[in-house]
Design a protein around this nucleic acid. Sequence first.
DNA 1: CCGCTAATGTAACATCCGGTACGTTCATAA
DNA 2: TTATGAACGTACCGGATGTTACATTAGCGG
Lengths: 212, 212
Amino acid sequence: MSERPIQHRDAERTRAELLEVATSVFADSGYSGARIDEIARRTRTTKRMIYYYFGGKEQLYLAVLESVYRGIRDKEQTLQVEEMDPADSLRRLSEITYDHHMANEEFIRLVAIENIHRGRFIRQIDSLRDLSKPALGVLDTILDRGRDEGRFRTDVDALDVHLLISSYCVFQVANQYTFGYLFDRDLQAEDQRSHLRSMIGDVVVAWVTERT
Amino acid sequence: MSERPIQHRDAERTRAELLEVATSVFADSGYSGARIDEIARRTRTTKRMIYYYFGGKEQLYLAVLESVYRGIRDKEQTLQVEEMDPADSLRRLSEITYDHHMANEEFIRLVAIENIHRGRFIRQIDSLRDLSKPALGVLDTILDRGRDEGRFRTDVDALDVHLLISSYCVFQVANQYTFGYLFDRDLQAEDQRSHLRSMIGDVVVAWVTERT
DNA sequence: CCGCTAATGTAACATCCGGTACGTTCATAA
DNA sequence: TTATGAACGTACCGGATGTTACATTAGCGG
């Protein structure tokens, strides 16, 4: 038996592992449904460490929330919608958002869970507010360009567009199970993807494009 | 102390009261978060009766799910989108859907909860499938009319339109807490309502309207 | 090599919570 | 009136679950 040179007593590793597993368990089962014992069991450490590093179940959940939001925003900031035709930019942004949501079901689930709790936990993390608003900057730039070129309506707000795109993309992930069951359509199916992926861009562009 | 002539031993009333309170508690706290004791406490009967009438927590939750879905579909079927201009009909349908969702937060929350559970419970209630699909009939009729008049695109599916409208309306209720907090905009605020209410109709009409 | 402390493990505790055993009461029908 | 069963209440059980008291070990500075 080859003893792996496991780094024992690695505070950072232990903490990180707990956070990672906790993210997965909370996303799976919700706050009440998640079990401290299960989180511990799935790591290489014990329940005791959750209290040592986080203080308790609630603080662990808060740490999870903050970490996933930061992770998402970090990823978002690396995305670049290149300088191009404003309509194409909107399409591109829509597709990026779509892909992004599809690839981060765990995050969407945690957001849904947080909303079930009426935002009770997220309200305790002030730092997240400042993280979100800049996300509208790109959209604002695109809309400005389109308006300058006289091709976009002037009465459409960036936040409204964001709301529209978010709604669509979040729904496909968050409500896939009930929708899929009730209407017999698997929103995650490969053959649906390309259609659904391009659809929201069409919708947005059709909406913001000025008609004469 | 005037003894109210309460009807004791009224099986139907007891069952109904349990179901009503359970709906509220499950919508508030989720399946795991809901407490059998709390449900009982909020009724005029005892915990024992939950097991007498429903069998257990899970069966009670299933009964709640089925009853709210039936209630929603019943209400939907009484709605009539009158014969009028297809574009106006779409706007009207959008607004009806918007109002409907805003007025039924409890239902939206139960759907969200069910999706957190990946539809595990709803899949046990076959009867709900047949209840949902007819809801697309109205939409189909409107789209047909618009297409016949040569004013709507021919490649837009009723289910796609439904998906778009649902996404938008569900999101406003389901994600109001995180969205409201992160972007500092209360989606339920009175002054937002009229704008958000008319917006989705504009979006849909712009999208399905044929441009030449 | 020693001592100190951060990091970890063990084992239990106290409470919560879904579920049930058992007894009681009321309404109805014969 | 009485027998009977549906409807209801009480009190409790047993396991699950978040939390902690206490003991232990590894690793680092001196």
